[in-house]
Every structure is written in C-alpha cells, then in structure tokens.
Design a binder for these strands. Structure first.
Lengths: 343, 343
DNA sequence: GATGAATCTGCAATCGATTGCAGAATAAAA
DNA sequence: TTTTATTCTGCAATCGATTGCAGATTCATC
C-alpha cells in the first residue's frame, strides 16, 4: 500500500537500460534514439515519475527556489506584493519560500540563515524598519546571491531596490487637496521615527511651499510613537477655529476613523473638510464617502522586484550586473472624500 | 571576491580530519572526542558554515518542507491562515512552501506536482471549490504524504480536515438577530453553488424554524452565480412593505455595501434594520456603524491545521494514524449594527 | 568481410551529507 | 612488552540525478 516515489533507476530497470539513458531521455537529449526515448518517457509517465528536485539541484549546484522575507504575511500590502512575486517567478519555473520576521530582528537573521541552508537562487526582502544591523544581508552579497530590497529604503548597500516614491505620492495628494480649494491643511502623521512617513511628510510640506500655501508646525498632528486615533484627531481638529478645510493622513486607517468621527458631529465631508488617505486599502472604496487615497501598486511592486531578480540572475552570468533602484510612481485615486469641484 | 558556501569537506581539510568526523562532530555525536569536536565546531563557525539542506534531505530521504496550497495568498483569510501555519511549523523547524492556484484547476494540479518533486514532508491544502477531480490529492495519499484539508469541506477522502462550522456560525448570527427582536429577516445569499454559503443558509434557516420565526423563499436575495451588490439588495429591501427588520449577509462586503446604501436613503441601522455580516474583516470594526459579524479564527485555523500535520507525521511512524475532522466554532462579534437592546 | 564513420548507450565520478563497519590509536591489564 | 579492551577516526557506499568519456552497436562503403 505505502509506495515510494519512482526514481530514474526504477524506470531504468523497467526499460532495461541504464539510468544515464533515462536521464538523457527525459531531458530530450538528441543523443538518445527516439524510439528508446519515447519508450522511456512512456514508462516514466506510467510510474508517475516526479524528478527529485533535491537531487537535481544538488547536482546542478543551484536551486530554483527564491526566498521572500517579509515582516509578516497577513498584512494586505505584503500578501499582495507576494502575489505579484509568485506570479512572475512561477511562470519562470521558480518556487517561492516565504518567511516572516514577525517583528523580531533575530528571527530575520534566522530566516536568512535558513535561506542560505536551502541554497536559494535569490532573495527578495523587505527588511524591518528597526533592524539596524545588516550583516545577515551582507552574507548573501558575499556568496553572490542576488538580493533585492523592496518597499523600504534607508539601506546603504550595493543592492537593487524597488521603492515606493512616497515623496511623490504625498505630493500628488497635497496637490489635489490644493486644487480642491483647501488652504488650511492638517497633516495627520504616523510614528515619528518611521522613514516612510517622514518621506510622505516631506512630499506634503514641499508641495504646499511650492504652491505658497501657509503651513506651520501646529498643523502637524502626531503621537510620539504610534498613530493618533481618529477620535483624538477629530477633537483636535474641532478645537481649531476657523476649522481646517483639508486633512492629509499618512494612512487609510486614520483617515477612515477620522471621517467616522467627524461625521458623527455633523461635519460635512468633503464640503467642510476634504480628507485623503494613503495606500488604497480595499475598504476605502466601500466606505461612505469613498476615500481619496494613494495607490501603491503593491502587486506590481512584487512583479517588478521579481523581474529584477530574474534579470540579475541573467546578468550575473555575464558579469554585467550593476545594482539599480527603481521608484514606482504611486497613483492618486480620486474619490468623493475630497471631490469639491472638478479638477 | 565571489565565494562558495563552505561544505563539511572544506571544514575537514582545515581541521585535518575526514568529512565523516566533521559530520559527526557537528551532530554532537558522542563518538567524537570532545576536543576534536570543539575544534571542528569552531572552524565551522569561522567558515560561516551552513549545512546544505538539499544534500541532507536527499540522504535522509525526507525534507522539512511543508507545502501549503491556497486559492490565492492576497486574500486576508488565507494570508492569516498561513500566518498561523507558519508560526507553528517554524517553531518545529519546518519551512513552508506556499503555492496559489489562482482560480485555475490545472494550476492546482501543477502545484501538487511541484510539491511532490520537492519531496515535501506534508501538505496543507484549501482546495478550490470548483475543482471536482481530486486525483492529484489522491497521489499524495498514495505516497503516504500527510495531507490536511482546511476550510473547505465537501471532499470525501480519508484525510484529516480542519473546518469552519459555518452552520453553527450562521446559527449564532440568526439567534442574535432574533434576540434583538427581528422577526422578518432577509437572507442575503452568495453564489448558489458554493458549499460554504449553502451551509450558512442551512444554519440560518434551521435556527429561524426552531425559534418559530416565519421564513419563506422570497426572503432569500440571491444572484445566480455571483454576489448581489449592496445597492441592488437595498432596492429590493426598500420595495418590501412593511420593511424587513433584519438582514443576514453571508459576507461582510455585501453587508457593508448594504449599510452604506440604506444609510443614504435614511434607513436607521440598527433601529429599523439590523444587519449581520460574516468573516470579521478588518473593516467591520471601523465602519459606521461597526458591523456585527462572525469571526472565523482564521489564524487559529492555520495553527490547528499545522498541529494536526505534526501529529500525523508522528502517528504515521507508529502506524497509529487515523484521519479526523476538527470543527472550529466561530464566534459572534456583537457590534452596533445589530444592537437594539441588551441581550 | 573488413574498414571507417556515425549513432547510441553505459561506466563511473560528482554534488554534500550520512552512517555501518573495519581498522587505527590509545589506554588498561597481564 | 604483549595482549585485550576501549575509544576514536576513516573508508566507502548511499541518497537521486547529471555528464564526460569510452566503448558498443549499427550502418554504409569499399
């Protein structure tokens, strides 16, 4: 009843040839007589033969497995990046080994170790923001294993990266708010030490400056090390007289909570206050009013990163590899939460 | 500059011993003199040695890789199931190879093939609802590879399963609506041929019957092969006089859209119509009013499935394995969309 | 039938790690 | 010092597939 998976040797025995012949026949090697080849392939099919990837890779000295390192898989941004990665790599015959760091730097290190042990062909990684020590990634570089960083950016290593142009995304949203007539805009910030949110702030601030819209620090609403709840933000906004006429939130979540809170006290959105989010979470199109936000093309980011990896694998063969950075331009998704006039 | 990863042979050469000795030393085999052992382990560390998992598994005839098959990874339910799986298996030294079927039955077959080629230790699978042919799964059984199905259920195979008790979940929601005073409840259905939605219907219907709440087929709102939009559902509801006082939706999405649509025409929720969703999507706690829904403990489902797999691996050694089914009881999350009185 | 060319197939080493068994080195006993 | 027991270490085969090289087979040609 229990049964082992067939090997080329089993096939060889059944076909009365050596395993070398089987190996060649299954590779459609022209050295093998076409009749023998067909006979062998038929037997292989009958035995339900699946080549042993372990043995194959061991012999070939390379695997068709690519490692993907993410902080966690159950965040929509990451799972959709992975979706993009998987699609591209699968089409090229690669499999994907996904590991999550779960907010632990040491787990991240262990994960890289694990990938090295699997002799993976390459790595796509979104390093945790807080990890300061990149020695584990340097190990990959040392062994000439192609490494691509995505999403996060403040790393100074000779490695290719796919990045979100958060600066540009924020600029788009700010531009839009201004075009909708907003003149007193609140910046709803994220945690202070986060590089990404910092870039969004810069894009926002610079755009206002360029358009000569006044902006001062008291228009920045921020908690020290986490997010401001929508309710708290609403209270602070309502305390301002005259009321601000626009809010730029660094996340969709904050924006949505804020909308709910403001609606309760009767503030009209977007007529009194226009609000933008960031990320284009699935929710944003469903809530009332639908939220204007910035789409980060996460799926495409995965696809681009995967393609870069394939390219790098190719280039390393000819020694023509040079690391590069690709910035993905985010897209402004205009919805009713800001629509006060036609742009 | 380019450098290969070290092997036991490299270590052996540096230590002036044979590779057998190295292999044993690294396994803390007591046969090896403790001084030799320590010397070898030191050298291994210096060379940054990572054991070649391919070679190791090939020799041992088993791998520490577990395959996970899902329809798609970028759905929150699946990514959080995977999160649970990964956590449990990682702690036991297993890695997880994730493959998505992407709505293609043939891709599902290919994925199983791919797992077989990797000589994976076991498989956790959520088969697509529409695939009728389970031969590829039977192949796993044939080769004694532990297989666990999760979430989906209408499969008749001698295989362990972790299932959501959708019947019970629906019963909980129905019970709750009745307790909130609803007497004329609409059932907002999903696609007709879907087993899961069918079970939810049965749980709903039976509960109404048990509580002597009248229910007839014209209270079922349904599209033939997909979901009813919130707007269409709202129109059909508003056409009823007197207005229904409750809605059971098989998904959160439909429920949320319905709420938005009803709010626009001034229907008070929950006072006029109480509404329940199903799944406890992240959104549901954020929207206004927050949606009463059924939590499926998806992360826990992954964890349970993973534990079952580990157990099965253990049991197969002693030939004590018997497939079993575990039903996870869903949880009613009560929020304001139904809260008309204290239960 | 002999010779040479062309076509096909098998031997054996290899990838990196593991392990049974034999044999070397060391320690203990005679 | 010799013998025996004990402790260590290495040889070589193995897992399953690949591949250079040599040898076998077939076929055409003289």
């Amino acid at each position: 009843m229990s049964q082992k998976q067939a090997t080329i040797h089993d096939i060889a025995k059944k076909a009365g040839v050596s395993s070398s012949t089987v190996s060649r026949a299954l590779q459609d090697n022209p050295l093998i007589n076409s009749k023998t080849r067909e006979r062998i392939q038929l037997i292989a099919e009958k035995l339900n033969y699946q080549p042993n990837v372990l043995a194959h890779n061991l012999r070939k000295g390379r695997s068709h497995m690519v490692g993907v390192l993410v902080p966690r898989i159950d965040h929509h941004f990451f799972s959709s990046v992975i979706g993009g990665i998987e699609k591209v790599l699968n089409e090229q015959g690669y499999n994907v080994l996904i590991l999550q760091a779960l907010d632990s730097v040491s787990k991240e290190v262990i994960n890289v170790q694990s990938l090295l042990e699997h002799r993976i062909a390459g790595v796509l990684a979104c390093p945790m923001a807080l990890s300061q020590d990149y020695n584990h990634y340097k190990l990959l570089v040392k062994y000439d294993i192609p490494l691509i960083f995505f999403d996060n950016t403040h790393i100074n290593m000779p490695v290719s990266m796919v990045l979100n142009d958060d600066y540009k995304g924020a600029a788009l949203a700010a531009e839009h708010l201004i075009n909708q007539g907003c003149r007193k805009i609140i910046f709803l910030a994220g945690p202070r030490n986060n590089y990404i949110y910092q870039r969004r702030f810069e894009g926002f601030r610079d755009t206002l400056k360029k358009r000569n819209i006044p902006f001062s620090d008291d228009q920045i609403f921020q908690n020290e090390s986490d997010f401001l709840s929508g309710k708290d933000a609403a209270n602070r906004i309502l305390a301002r007289m005259p009321l601000p006429d626009g809010v730029f939130s660094v996340t969709d979540h904050q924006a949505i909570q804020l909308i709910q809170a403001l609606k309760i006290v009767g503030v009209k959105i977007p007529q009194q206050i226009a609000i933008t989010g960031f990320s284009n979470a699935e929710i944003t199109s469903i809530i009332d009013p639908p939220l204007t936000t910035i789409d980060q093309h996460s799926r495409e980011m995965g696809a681009v990163a995967a393609k870069m990896l394939l390219e790098e694998l190719e280039q390393r063969k000819n020694n023509t590899f040079i690391p590069k950075k690709i910035y993905l331009t985010p897209e402004l998704i205009i919805r009713q939460s800001t629509l006060r006039r036609n742009e």
